[in-house]
């Protein structure tokens, strides 16, 4: 630590706050997919930039951790760079851009393409933790629906998608049923990533700072994307290959270039780099 961070506790938050968040996390892990309220703190970061994720990370990070931060799959976007630098300053832990080296990954909008392991923890930044929000905006009523498993209303939305578009049309944040009990918002990851959550060996933690809610999916927990019997959930192929590594089985971003040309590249930049290095002798 240098002079600028003198006086700050390890990982910025004071120990009592971290304990409070850990207590909420324990409850969240014990009841997979259930939203647990917590006393969200002001962070040196605007709401919407990952205040929930950053508090969860701060509560679980240890001196031996290796941290990776991704934003939309990329390690070098503003959000990722700043959060990574923040933790490097306030904890002094080693940071990395390589998914395989990281023990703790904070993410926004993506799950890495490399399968995660039991040795890793992934922290999601969540803007809206309530999957029922669009159908039942009253928080108290939504809590009741969760308590009594009245999830029929969730399928009303999916029904509406099929009626209108002929398919289930949540390109991202597609609701999932966790452990056969709670319907959960997977945060705005593309539905392409939903299957990765199912029985994932890594611990998945979710933090929503503005909404003051935490939730979690313990390792090897069933996570099923909601669907209809005759319209099962499936990942729509994007129909492109990565212009850099040639991958067709990863999530691709469309990049607009000078002159209006379009290029599709892997959204997970670390994975793309790995593929390219493999190919080069």
């Amino acid at each position: 630590m240098n002079a600028a961070t003198a006086g700050y506790n390890f990982a910025y938050l004071d120990e009592r706050t971290k304990r409070m968040i850990r207590r909420a996390l324990l409850k969240a892990v014990a009841v997979p997919g259930c939203q647990v309220p917590f006393g969200s703190r002001e962070m040196p970061l605007a709401y919407g930039w990952g205040t929930g994720g950053i508090q969860v990370t701060a509560a679980v990070i240890g001196a031996g951790d290796v941290l990776k931060v991704i934003d939309q799959g990329s390690d070098d976007t503003t959000n990722a760079v700043n959060i990574r630098r923040f933790f490097a300053r306030v904890t002094g832990v080693r940071t990395t851009e390589r998914t395989r080296e990281a023990t703790l990954i904070q993410t926004r909008h993506r799950i890495p393409e490399v399968p995660l392991t039991e040795q890793q923890v992934i922290v999601y930044q969540v803007p809206q933790p309530e999957p029922l929000y669009k159908l039942e905006p009253r928080r108290s009523a939504a809590t009741r629906l969760h308590a009594w498993r009245e999830y029929g209303v969730m399928n009303v939305k999916l029904y509406e998608d099929i009626a209108r578009w002929g398919r289930i049309d949540s390109a991202y944040d597609h609701p999932v049923l966790v452990n056969g009990r709670y319907v959960m918002a997977p945060s705005p990851i593309p539905s392409f990533d939903n299957p990765k959550m199912h029985r994932m060996p890594a611990l998945q933690l979710f933090g929503a700072g503005r909404e003051k809610r935490l939730y979690a999916v313990p390792p090897y927990t069933d996570v099923k994307s909601l669907d209809f019997e005759d319209h099962p959930f499936k990942v729509e192929p994007q129909g492109h290959a990565c212009a850099l590594c040639g991958s067709t089985d990863t999530w691709l971003d469309e990049v607009l270039q000078d002159g209006g040309a379009r290029m599709w590249t892997c959204s997970d930049t670390d994975f793309c780099r790995e593929r390219r290095e493999e190919k080069q002798p």
Binding site: E150, G152, V153, Y159, E160, R164, D227
Partner: peptide, 19 residues
């Protein structure tokens, strides 16, 4: 939501999942 979804809501609440 559409008329169809309105009529179907109670059935979906009862666990019917066949579009």
């Amino acid at each position: 939501v559409s008329a169809g979804a309105n009529v179907g809501e109670r059935l979906m609440a009862l666990g019917r999942r066949h579009y």
